[in-house]
Write a protein that binds this DNA or RNA. Structure first.
Length: 380
RNA sequence: GCAGGGGUUCCCGAGUGGCCAAAGGGGGCGGGCUGUAAACCCGCUGGCUCAGCCUUCGGAGGUUCGAAUCCUCCCCCCUGCACCA
């Protein structure tokens, strides 16, 4: 563990030499990371930063995880082309809980402090808000690219969004952060934190941003709202498959950011398999990684049914109306099920079915497949 | 307050009386190909036991043989201007 481990995959370390200075203080540093509990899942992209935070912990420092239960009610405008939808309170609270739990898969519980920013933002009165917002000017706020674009494009920017960076900066004051880390998209907010701290007479935090991981689509940054993520808490088979679905062009970055490793000099297919194995291993262990790969080989590459197929019963009718049954088993609408049949995606014991009514005798005990990844065995 | 522009199917976005379950793109799904759920090509993409029927174009009414498209009222959003300070 070393300095290099703290700044691996970092894009900005600001200001120059600040991190070294903080480390030289010789006491455990308070390293802050904020999250908006907009969804319960931590994905491997967010884990890039979390794992750096864990590196700080290994050197004896304290991770201060700020759950933005209050700021989530504002909505972080970072990288946004429009206003965020605000979630109801109970959903946010629940997400926050699940989120913290998942974070401990990466962080050391003993060296982690979890704080909800409602603790102090909820008490912020108007006078205090005025003082806080005197930290910056409207021109400064509109300087940031996402706002500038929306402003130019005559898109709405709500005042509450404008307030967001101040609220985040106030978090740093409240927890006395020495360092704040985040994705590169957080640079503006993190730097504002420095100004806010100065405004409150505190030594400004050092700021580190880490490279953002692209999502499984290989284009957009990985995010919950895009649905292009691999969750650290997902089933191994799911994780493995999702990693295999990333475009080859994203391979190098995934190796570097997800596994802190140099991409191996292998053909892309082998490299991707190794990556998938590595990621599943990291979060679920080597045994699960082996299972997930076997599952992938069997189901995807060889087109066979998985080892353990879910079982289901049939309705008493004979013949059986297949669309309704498939819809029921796989959570589809009957129209979708019909389309799958029409497209030749439905097989009974390996044979394509093209009729909607099928005799019970043919289905009982049979393995039914709808598309490549949906299987069911009918027991009766 | 005034003026203008909007609210369309998962998303973006066309459509201004019938040919509209609604162009196009995205996403998703399916098929082909492939030692990848990569890439590429093709197809499908509201619901319903489905050659038919039902529901959908902010909401409620109305005109019409027929409305996403016309009228009335209402709700919501955006931009600009004004008012107040």
């Amino acid at each position: 563990m070393s300095f290099a481990d703290l700044t691996r995959n970092a894009v900005h370390v600001h200001p120059e030499g600040a991190l070294e200075q903080k480390l030289a203080l010789g006491r455990p540093l308070r390293v802050k990371l904020g999250i908006d509990p907009t969804g319960p899942d931590i994905h491997v992209g967010f884990a890039v930063v979390l794992r750096r935070l864990a590196a700080f912990q290994r050197l004896g420092h304290i991770a201060v995880l700020i759950v933005g239960d209050y700021t989530a009610r504002i909505g972080d405008p970072s990288g946004r082309s429009r206003e965020r939808q605000v979630l109801p309170d109970d959903v946010l609270d629940r997400n926050a809980e699940l989120f913290a739990e998942q974070a401990y898969r990466i962080l050391d519980r003993e060296r982690t402090e979890v704080r909800f920013n409602g603790e102090w933002l909820g008490k912020l009165d108007y006078a205090e808000l005025v003082r806080l917002t005197r930290t910056g000017t409207v021109a400064q706020l509109l300087e940031r690219d996402d706002f500038a674009q929306r402003f130019r494009g005559r898109e709405p920017i709500s005042v509450s969004e404008l307030l967001y960076p101040f609220a985040q900066g106030y978090d740093s004051v409240a927890v006395q952060a020495d360092v704040e880390v985040g994705g590169t998209d957080q640079l503006y907010n993190l730097l504002m934190g420095r100004d806010v701290m100065a405004n409150y007479g505190l030594e400004p935090q050092a700021v580190i941003t880490y490279e953002l991981l692209v999502g499984t689509d290989g284009v957009e940054k990985m995010s919950k709202s895009q649905g292009n993520y691999v969750g650290i808490d997902e089933p191994p088979e799911e994780q493995f498959g999702k990693v295999m679905s990333i475009p080859d062009a994203a391979l190098d970055q995934w190796w570097r950011l997800c596994l802190d490793a140099e991409p191996p000099r292998l053909e892309s297919m082998k490299s991707k398999l190794a990556l998938a194995r590595g990621i599943v291993d990291l979060y679920n262990g080597s045994e699960a990684a082996g299972r997930a790969e076997a599952h992938f080989t069997r189901v995807v590459r060889e087109g066979q049914a998985p080892e353990d197929v879910a079982e289901a019963g049939l309705p008493p009718d004979d013949p059986v109306h297949l669309p309704a049954v498939l819809a029921d088993c796989f959570g589809l609408s009957t129209s979708e099920a019909r389309r799958l049949i029409a497209q030749g995606a439905v097989k009974v014991d390996g044979e394509v079915v093209d009729e909607l009514e099928v005799h019970r005798a043919r289905l009982v005990g049979a393995l039914v497949q709808a598309g490549k990844r949906r299987f069911v065995r009918f027991t009766s």
